[in-house]
Write a protein that binds this DNA or RNA. Structure first.
Lengths: 148, 148
DNA sequence: ACCCATCATTGGTGTCAGCCTACAATGGGC
DNA sequence: GCCCATTGTAGGCTGACACCAATGATGGGT
């Protein structure tokens, strides 16, 4: 079966959307096996890369609604991946920090993500993957921050 | 603000997912202005590329649930983009065909899609876009058909 | 001391995509 | 003629996602 209509396959954005969705879907499937969603991984990554943060700053950085961030942090805290502590200087703020367990969890998740990546990018050799990554990075950096 | 955590930006699949979502979102926004969704465009493209089809074959080709296909065709028919006709040989089947109006509509939509593409791929020159497209095409073709 | 802004939190809304069941009409094997 | 498979159709359910309003605690300016 010819599968995809050539009119669509000719659009780079279509391929981008389709392959991106495939990648996201696969990773999400793996994560849901552990009771996690993609936002959980994003939060863990942000904490690992940028250190402990006020909840609000985390939400702003990841461009997620603060009220949704609460739930994500709730679940991460329930899994001992994250610790909440009132900021002693400004007691309105809650400082969120990665626990050792959280760091391990993140390592395991990135390993899974790389496995998914190997699967999705199977037809490309190392050089191809590098150029693809570089191109996408340029596109991504030029994208406006928000979802729109 | 540093925006994206490096741990995530290092994953090609993350960039793929993010840029793909951006592209899809922008095009969807344009389409919704005309009361259409992405599936409508996909169906129009499939009809233009492969000719009139039984509804079931269309659904199988695009990997969409037949019951959802009904609604998409309903809306396309209401907009005079598509014609339904019972197959005279097998009266269970419905042959769906593109109308001239539908063909025009598709041309307008692909023009919009290319405009969105120009916007998203702004940081890349023509050569970069060509290599990106070629790489994505290889990845896409290697992807299994279904969503999983 | 007072007023307003900020922060985390709760809870609710709307949308959308994907999926699954039931059903009526039709076709085709036997 | 009978039984089962196929096709289009209708309807509803679910999970994810984004967004928004209200509230209680706190901070800080004046």
């Amino acid at each position: 079966m010819t599968g995809t209509p050539p009119t669509l396959a000719a659009l780079t954005t279509y391929l981008l959307s389709k392959t991106g969705k495939a990648a996201r879907g696969r990773l999400a499937a793996h994560l849901s096996g552990e009771g996690l969603r993609l936002w959980h991984m994003a939060v863990l990554a942000a904490l690992a890369d940028f250190g402990p943060q006020a909840q609000r700053d985390l939400a702003a950085r990841l461009v997620i609604d603060p009220s949704d961030m609460v739930k994500v942090i709730d679940e991460l805290a329930a899994a001992d991946c994250v610790e909440r502590a009132r900021d002693t200087a400004d007691r309105r703020r809650v400082r969120v920090a990665l626990t050792p367990a959280g760091r391990d969890r993140l390592a395991a998740l990135t390993a899974r993500a790389e496995a998914v990546q190997d699967e999705v990018l199977a037809p490309l050799d190392a050089a191809d993957r590098a150029t693809l990554h570089a191109l996408l990075l340029r596109v991504h950096e030029a994208l406006p921050a928000g979802p729109e």
